[in-house]
Amino acid sequence: MAVVLKPFDYASDGFTVEHLNEGDERDFGAATDGLVAEGFVSEGDVDLDGETPVSPLKKRGK
Protein backbone atom coordinates (compact mmCIF):
# COMPACT_ATOMS: atom_id res chain seq x y z
CA MET A 1 0.00 0.00 0.00
CA ALA A 2 1.12 3.52 -0.76
CA VAL A 3 0.17 6.71 1.09
CA VAL A 4 -0.78 9.85 -0.87
CA LEU A 5 1.49 12.84 -0.13
CA LYS A 6 0.05 15.33 -2.66
CA PRO A 7 -3.62 15.42 -3.76
CA PHE A 8 -4.22 14.25 -7.35
CA ASP A 9 -6.86 12.66 -9.58
CA TYR A 10 -6.41 8.96 -10.36
CA ALA A 11 -8.35 6.57 -12.59
CA SER A 12 -7.37 3.02 -11.66
CA ASP A 13 -9.67 1.51 -14.28
CA GLY A 14 -8.96 4.18 -16.90
CA PHE A 15 -12.51 5.55 -16.79
CA THR A 16 -13.65 6.39 -13.26
CA VAL A 17 -11.68 9.37 -11.90
CA GLU A 18 -11.20 9.48 -8.15
CA HIS A 19 -9.76 12.48 -6.29
CA LEU A 20 -7.15 11.31 -3.79
CA ASN A 21 -6.22 13.43 -0.76
CA GLU A 22 -3.26 13.44 1.61
CA GLY A 23 -3.22 10.35 3.78
CA ASP A 24 -5.33 8.15 1.48
CA GLU A 25 -3.93 4.64 1.07
CA ARG A 26 -4.15 2.75 -2.21
CA ASP A 27 -2.49 -0.05 -4.13
CA PHE A 28 -1.35 1.61 -7.36
CA GLY A 29 0.12 -1.55 -8.86
CA ALA A 30 2.58 -0.90 -11.67
CA ALA A 31 2.09 2.89 -11.35
CA THR A 32 3.56 2.94 -7.82
CA ASP A 33 7.19 3.40 -8.85
CA GLY A 34 6.40 6.38 -11.08
CA LEU A 35 4.16 8.03 -8.47
CA VAL A 36 6.87 7.61 -5.82
CA ALA A 37 9.50 9.06 -8.18
CA GLU A 38 7.30 12.11 -8.84
CA GLY A 39 6.62 12.63 -5.11
CA PHE A 40 2.86 11.98 -5.19
CA VAL A 41 2.96 8.89 -2.94
CA SER A 42 5.23 7.11 -0.47
CA GLU A 43 5.53 3.39 0.11
CA GLY A 44 6.60 3.74 3.77
CA ASP A 45 5.06 5.19 6.89
CA VAL A 46 4.93 8.96 6.62
CA ASP A 47 4.51 11.95 8.91
CA LEU A 48 2.04 14.02 6.84
CA ASP A 49 2.78 17.19 8.81
CA GLY A 50 6.41 17.19 7.72
CA GLU A 51 6.09 14.79 4.78
CA THR A 52 9.14 12.88 5.96
CA PRO A 53 9.36 9.10 6.19
CA VAL A 54 8.94 7.70 9.67
CA SER A 55 10.87 4.55 8.80
CA PRO A 56 13.71 4.48 6.27
CA LEU A 57 12.75 3.32 2.80
CA LYS A 58 14.87 0.91 0.81
CA LYS A 59 16.51 2.52 -2.19
CA ARG A 60 15.96 0.78 -5.49
CA GLY A 61 18.28 0.77 -8.40
CA LYS A 62 21.88 -0.09 -9.12
Rank of each mutant, 00 (worst) to 15 (best):
A2R: 00
V4H: 03
V4C: 08
V4S: 04
L5T: 04
L5K: 09
K6L: 12
D9Y: 02
D9E: 13
D9Q: 03
A11T: 03
A11Q: 09
G14A: 06
F15P: 02
T16A: 08
V17D: 08
V17C: 03
V17S: 11
V17M: 13
E18C: 08
H19L: 12
N21K: 10
E22I: 09
E22T: 03
G23Q: 08
D24Q: 07
E25W: 06
E25K: 15
R26N: 01
D27I: 03
A30W: 09
A30H: 09
D33M: 06
G34A: 12
G34L: 07
G34F: 02
G34W: 00
A37L: 09
E38C: 00
G39M: 01
V41W: 01
S42M: 10
S42G: 14
G44M: 13
D45E: 14
D45I: 01
D45W: 09
V46Y: 05
D47Y: 06
L48A: 11
D49F: 11
G50W: 09
G50S: 15
T52F: 12
P53R: 05
P53Y: 07
P53S: 05
P53M: 05
V54S: 11
P56Q: 09
L57K: 08
K58I: 13
K59V: 10
R60A: 14
R60P: 07
K62H: 13
K62Q: 12
